[in-house]
């Protein structure tokens, strides 16, 4: 198989995309170490990762260049983007419900609503005095003024 200019160009672009994707994943991993707590870390763990895997797989597709492989890679991207949020949501949700994230939050709309639910016992005391002055939540109009900094 002698490489045509187009094949070479696709190879080069593919290699570049794989490199870029890997670099973005690396940055996300650094963020995972650097950021302070679970929920912030979940930002670093999900967003750059999703972009990174997308770029890596597109790069691989550019090097493979067959229809059926592209289909398989598209399937991988699809399931990756579909399942990643589920995992990160479960981590965020369990981290939130077991407590330990409230002290770091500026304000917390969810906390009040959870407290209102009678069938959902709260396992942790509410340590956040910042939100005492806020009106009951019923929409975005009431404009969250950041209290205390």
């Amino acid at each position: 198989m002698n490489p045509t200019p187009w094949a070479q160009a696709a190879d080069t672009v593919g290699a570049f995309l794989v490199f870029l994707g890997a670099a973005i994943c690396l940055l996300g991993s650094i963020g995972l170490v650097k950021l302070p707590e679970v929920l912030s870390r979940s930002h670093a763990a999900t967003k750059p990762q999703a972009l990174g895997i997308l770029l890596v797989l597109v790069g691989v597709a550019l090097r493979l260049r067959t229809g059926i492989d592209a289909g398989t890679l598209a399937l991988i991207i699809f399931f990756q983007l579909l399942t990643g949020p589920v995992a990160s949501h479960l981590v965020a949700r369990s981290a939130y419900r077991t407590g330990g994230v409230h002290a770091d939050l500026l304000f917390d709309d969810l906390d009040e609503q959870l407290s209102e639910e009678p069938d959902m016992p709260r396992s942790h005391p509410r340590p956040d005095p910042d939100r005492e002055d806020a009106a009951p939540k019923d929409g975005p109009e009431d404009g969250h003024t950041p209290g205390g900094g």
Partner: peptide, 9 residues
């Protein structure tokens, strides 16, 4: 970072 949990209808 001052993070927060925001409710969006």
């Amino acid at each position: 970072h001052r993070a927060a949990v925001l409710a969006i209808p």
